[in-house]
């Protein structure tokens, strides 16, 4: 895995670059995931608000709901849930696609046709995942906040302007920048794990299924580990 990642960096920074394939992968990986991510983000924001409400009311701080939901969505839930869904959708599809390409010798065929399959398949997909997940997370954050706004409005009438003032007032660069930066790493993890599992898939159709499955599992675990590291590093860096 480490060698695979090292090879990724070696190959990614050397010509030739597969730009048109990269754009195509960005479309497939990014744009095509938007509806799923958007739906889950919306529900997440709505449900989070509704679940938080009873305990906030008990302490008489229901006015703090937008601030709390805002912070938790931007800092943690938006990135991590989106990344996990991304891992489920993209990690498995990359794993299965590359796995089946390996099994049906398409990867070999590519190599024979004068294409570096590592560049053409692995680099493009990993880069696309790395670049697209942050975009998805930003959109998901916005959608989740909108969901949360509706969640608040189920019980009380709150102007959108006040809601957004409450959310923004309690956020700082400290909350947003690390949260965005870590999503690049999440995306990279999903891409590289999916590619790794697919690229070295064992022969047979069973191998394809296994690589898709283990790509999701491994990517999810990596996301959590990276998240933990991100918290520690953020604390360290921001306090310098």
């Amino acid at each position: 895995m480490a060698r695979f990642t090292a090879r990724f960096f070696r190959e990614a920074f050397h010509p030739r670059y597969e730009f048109s394939e990269l754009i195509r992968q960005c479309f497939i990986i990014g744009y095509k995931s938007l509806s799923l991510v958007g739906l889950t983000a919306f529900i997440m924001g709505l449900v989070l608000t509704m679940q938080l409400r009873p305990s906030m009311v008990r302490y008489g701080v229901e006015a703090e709901i937008p601030a709390m939901v805002g912070i938790s969505i931007i800092r943690e839930i938006g990135p991590i849930i989106t990344a996990l869904i991304f891992a489920g959708k993209i990690g498995s599809s990359i794993g299965a696609e590359l796995g089946s390409m390996r099994v049906t010798e398409q990867i070999d065929a590519m190599e024979v046709s004068g294409t570096n399959p590592f560049k053409y398949l692995v680099v493009t997909r990993t880069v696309a995942a790395t670049l697209m997940l942050p975009v998805l997370v930003i959109l998901a954050d916005a959608i989740a906040l909108y969901g949360s706004y509706l969640g608040v409005n189920i019980y009380e009438i709150l102007s959108f302007k006040l809601f957004y003032t409450l959310v923004i007032d309690n956020l700082g660069y400290y909350d947003v920048i690390p949260a965005i930066i870590k999503t690049f790493f999440f995306g990279f993890a999903v891409g590289i794990v999916g590619c790794f599992k697919g690229y070295y898939s064992s022969k047979g159709t069973e191998g394809v299924g296994r690589s898709a499955n283990s790509a999701v599992v491994m990517a999810s675990v990596f996301i959590f580990i990276l998240d933990l590291l991100a918290v520690q590093i953020t604390e360290l860096v921001w306090n310098l």
Partner: peptide, 20 residues
């Protein structure tokens, strides 16, 4: 190797057509 491969055709057992 790429240049050489252009002169050698290889028909794979499983055809290896790109599904996508």
């Amino acid at each position: 190797l790429d240049l050489l491969r252009a002169k050698v055709g290889f028909l794979f057992q499983s055809n290896a057509l790109y599904d996508s």
